[in-house]
Write a protein that binds this DNA or RNA. Structure first.
Lengths: 149, 149
DNA sequence: GGCACAAATAGGAATGGTTCCTATTTAGTC
DNA sequence: GACTAAATAGGAACCATTCCTATTTGTGCC
């Protein structure tokens, strides 16, 4: 059984990939990849900005977007768009199912596999998938508990 | 085997529901539900505005959004948010899978069933789903053909 | 260590889909 | 036809994201 990589290992891989591709390892970029390696709550651009400004107070909004866009283009992170919420960013580039709480905004990963493979979709419809999103909207355990009283 | 309702039947149901709930049947609303009953391409707000202005030239942007919001709140249509595209509106409120072409923007329905029921998700994770979205992004048949030459 | 240069950043302006505001208009009812 | 609450038109406001550009910074080289 293959264990999943630690935050430190994930971060090291990202640093290596960026260096290999000739990207400069600026303090802003290192802060962003370090954050995304550890924070698995799929933070949005505003969250990321707020958090990295704790160590780098003058980071600009445009730098965060520019960096996220670069990481996305390089396939190192995944950008997720959600219903009634800002975009979120996820270090997990594999396809998976998200459970999105309409009350607290938390996003969990669903422990189930992709139900139709790209090949199955292609075969059935002649549509060639390159990406997918699968999301459930509702209320998470703790928000249901609060509502019940 | 139950046949699917005709556009005329869908429209009649929407009119009936609105009247029952005490909504006024204005010319703008009738134009919008008539369009959504016939147009199964999941049009966006801008499309809808453009099309209904052919018969009602002074319809405002805000009316279109206000009406779509009302239909959505009443559960008569479904609002869909997409990656890199404006919102779209769909008369089909049942859960289904969309195939979205990254080239021409066309959205097809995938002829497969919902892979995890709400009950299954609830049971597995303690998360209570109320809605879902399942989408594949890629290239449709005709766009692949064009690209091949 | 210091230099040169392209790449990256900060800060602010611009964008554009959507929402908000409110005076005017209208569908439904009697 | 008149009344009234609901709906509409038009434009302003909003706000996440993108664009613009002068300044700063990492990297490679000496």
């Amino acid at each position: 059984m293959k264990r999943s990589p630690t935050p430190r290992e994930i971060e090291a891989v990202l640093r290596k990939r960026l260096r290999e591709k000739g990207y400069k390892l600026t303090s802003q970029r290192l802060a962003i990849i370090s954050l995304l390696s550890k924070d698995l709550t799929h933070p949005g651009a505003a969250d990321i900005l707020k958090k990295i400004r704790k160590s780098l107070p003058h980071v600009s909004v445009s730098t965060v977007y520019y960096t996220l866009d670069m990481l996305k283009r390089e396939g190192l992170i995944q950008e997720l768009e959600f219903y009634d919420q800002d975009n979120r960013y996820d270090i997990n580039v594999s396809n998976h199912i998200n459970l999105i709480c309409k009350n607290c905004g938390k996003i969990e990963d669903f422990p189930g596999k992709q139900p139709y493979t790209y090949a199955q979709v292609r075969q059935k419809t002649d549509f060639q998938p390159l990406g997918m999103r699968y999301e459930y909207y509702g209320y998470c355990k703790s928000c249901r508990r609060k509502r019940a009283g």
